[in-house]
């Protein structure tokens, strides 16, 4: 068989074919893997962090869209590999704490992420950069409820029989809110279970997603519930008759942010992205479009969003979850919720 191409010719040809890709990669943006939720959150990340700030730093995300727990599981499962599958992972503070406990997260210090120095007290952790936060409040329909509810215990009041409801996905935060009323702490799940059992007996409606929790206020199915202040602002903007009432016992805080696994392939880009996320403009963008409060002292809200998200005077007790307890209690509470509250 005659030799059509010599080995040298083949190698030269392959080199020529690969040249455009090699030349392009030298000039292209540096990519990193961003593990995040889809939908509005991802869109707003692109519009408020990546396009206006991060892209100017020469970094671009390759998005890995998934729910939070599969994302956490992926990081945990690959923690012993030298090269991980994610550079930045978006997670709630509760999950970040558990992952930090397991030793899989990179510390985020001001020399790596300069803007971390501006994070508000009580929101961040050594390995966690908070992105958004919102207090958990009592939601009510102002057209039908003339005197707003003042405490979590009112959800068990017979005057709201069959008119109480909230998204099932928030069950753990609801348990903490019940604990806060019953004990003054966020971790007394024995008392929380007692109170939630009464609320359930009062005809509690559970909805399969956060979005599904808004329309029942409009249809008249429910009059009161528990929700994030951020979501109330979104629902109000969508024309749903709903308002926020701050419970007198205080509010549990929902805090969500970003972490960098220790084995992240591109930590430099990850730190740069997280720093961009903490820029005031990015923070204000999220507040305006999603109703979550900025996590840095350098971002100040103005106008309509400032009014919608304003804290009452005097400011209520704002309580972040006690992560050391919650991460351990989560499986038991989840099991109890499944078998007691969800199970008719």
């Amino acid at each position: 068989m005659p030799e059509v191409f010599s080995r040298r010719t083949l190698l030269a040809g392959a080199g020529l074919l690969a040249a455009p890709a090699l030349i392009r990669s030298a000039h292209a943006e540096e990519t990193f893997i961003l593990g995040t939720w889809g939908g509005d959150y991802q869109r707003l990340q692109m519009e408020n962090i990546e396009k206006p700030i991060a892209s100017k730093l020469g970094i671009a995300s390759v998005v890995d869209v998934a729910d939070e727990l599969p994302r956490v599981a992926k990081i945990m499962a690959s923690r012993r590999l030298p090269r991980g599958q994610m550079d930045v992972a978006c997670v709630q503070a509760v999950q970040a704490y558990s992952m930090a406990e397991a030793g899989v997260l990179e510390e985020l210090t001001p020399d790596k992420v300069p803007n971390i120095a501006h994070v508000k007290a009580g929101l961040g952790m050594t390995c966690f950069a908070p992105h958004i936060w919102s207090p958990q409040i009592l939601s009510y329909n102002p057209e039908r409820v003339k005197s707003p509810p003042t405490s979590f215990a009112e959800l068990a009041d017979p005057k709201y029989k069959d008119k109480v409801g909230f998204p099932d996905v928030n069950y753990f935060y609801v348990m903490m809110a019940a604990s806060l009323y019953a004990s003054g702490t966020s971790t007394d799940f024995v008392k929380a279970k007692e109170l939630l059992t009464k609320v359930n007996a009062n005809g509690l409606h559970l909805y399969p997603s956060t979005d599904a929790g808004g329309p029942p206020f409009k249809s008249g199915e429910i009059d009161v519930g528990v929700m994030w202040l951020a979501r109330i602002a979104m629902w109000q903007n969508a024309g749903i008759p709903v308002a926020a009432a701050f419970p007198k016992e205080g509010c549990i805080l929902y805090v969500s942010g970003m972490v960098v696994p220790k084995n992240a392939p591109n930590k430099k880009a990850a730190f740069a992205y997280i720093n961009a996320m903490l820029e005031p403009a990015a923070q204000i963008g999220f507040a305006e479009h999603m109703g979550y409060l900025p996590t840095v002292t350098t971002a100040t809200l103005t106008g309509k969003v400032a009014k919608q998200l304003a804290m009452p005077d005097p400011e209520p007790k704002l309580m972040p979850p006690d992560f050391a307890v919650t991460s351990k209690a989560l499986p038991d509470v989840t099991d109890w919720w499944k078998k007691t509250i969800q199970h008719v």
Partner: peptide
């Protein structure tokens, strides 16, 4: 999941709940 809601329990949603919500693989 969508028509039964959180209170309606069937096996496939339960598998997902344990996998996804509880991380109990």
């Amino acid at each position: 999941v969508l028509l039964g809601g959180p209170r309606f329990q069937m096996m496939a949603p339960l598998v997902f709940w344990e996998f996804n919500t509880n991380s109990n693989w």
